[in-house]
């Protein structure tokens, strides 16, 4: 342990570290939701999937002593939740937003129920790569101890962005999202595409949960998520259904979230509730500045019920 404190330099470092540490679940959930919403469907229930992912990852990691098997289990569980949502919403007159909210209850309930025996045991953590060894400061070393899932999240961001733009799969997804009729004319079944897109979204959201329980904060209890899943779904709109935007929004959100504790640690102790609201205020301000009254949300899939 280094004996000297960083002082005010701790604040920007904490924001950087916070952006890296806190953003990962947001990145995964918002990428997953981007896939789902690009297909023209919205799954508001990813909070439930995230928590169920956190639970199943932790449980399987405890049982098998392998954190990666935990992540795999979470992915599969998340995909099942997505499939269920996609299947139910296939039927006419069923409201996808409402089903999402109901599935959130269901996912939370099931996760809490099945997770009871796993609150006490300690699961193995996901590995992290120490990228900060060049620095002699332990604070910098700690900030740059980067989890593999964060890096996977970044790679995934760019691959999904590329996929949406340049591949046939991306094209199908966009066509289905913009017009069911056009998709049918192309011989594509929109419901099947949406089913798969929702399943993929669920799997990614559950990885976000696995990050929470297996790395940071790295623990399973019923209060592990404080609405990250719901917020991440909202960030997708903020990011205009653009994967790189999701990544940027998540980093911003994570970094701003670190502001509150960091300021208190350097002695700015008044009004911490307001500092804690910084991520929300900042997001709202950016949202107001970048929106325009005259045009529809650019990038919004035409079939999406939320933005019609």
């Amino acid at each position: 342990m280094e004996e000297t404190a960083l002082g005010l330099w701790g604040v920007p470092l904490a924001i950087l570290a916070g952006a890296i540490r806190v953003s990962t679940p947001f990145i995964f959930v918002s990428l997953g939701e981007t896939l789902t919403e690009r297909s023209g469907r919205i799954n508001l229930g990813l909070e439930g999937t995230l928590v169920f992912g956190a639970m199943s990852a932790y449980a399987v990691a405890v049982l098998t002593q392998s954190a990666w098997l935990g992540v795999l289990a979470a992915m599969m569980a998340g995909a099942v939740f997505g499939l269920l949502h996609g299947f139910i919403c296939k039927f006419p007159k069923v409201n996808d937003i409402a089903i999402g909210i109901a599935m959130m209850q269901f996912g939370l309930g099931l996760a809490f129920f099945l997770g009871k025996p796993f609150i006490q045991p300690v699961a193995p953590k996901l590995p992290a790569i120490p990228l900060g060894n060049w620095s002699s400061l332990p604070q910098v070393q700690a900030a740059l101890t980067i989890n593999v899932l964060f890096i996977v999240g970044l790679i995934l961001t760019f691959s999904i962005a590329w996929m949406l733009k340049n591949t046939r799969v991306g094209l199908i997804l966009r066509v289905v999202g913009d017009s069911s009729d056009a998709a049918r004319a192309m011989g594509i079944n929109p419901n099947t595409v949406r089913l798969l897109a929702t399943a993929a979204g669920g799997a990614l959201a559950a990885i976000g949960g696995a990050y929470l329980s297996l790395f940071y904060p790295g623990s399973w209890n019923e209060r592990i998520s404080s609405g990250q899943g719901l917020m991440a779904v909202a960030l997708v709109i903020f990011a205009r259904w653009n994967p790189k935007g999701c990544m940027f929004a998540s980093l911003l959100f994570g970094g701003a979230g670190a502001l509150g504790p960091a300021l208190q640690s350097v002695g700015v102790t008044q009004g911490y509730y307001l500092f804690y609201a910084a991520p929300y205020v900042l997001t709202l301000i950016i949202l107001i500045m970048t929106s325009s009254p005259t045009t529809r949300l650019s990038g919004a899939p035409e079939e999406l019920s939320l933005t019609k």
Partner: peptide, 17 residues
């Protein structure tokens, strides 16, 4: 009870020595 914020607070304290 706010898991992530508690973890952030712990890190911030340790960063400050």
């Amino acid at each position: 009870s706010l898991a992530v914020k508690e973890a952030e607070a712990t890190n911030a304290l340790i960063d400050q020595g």
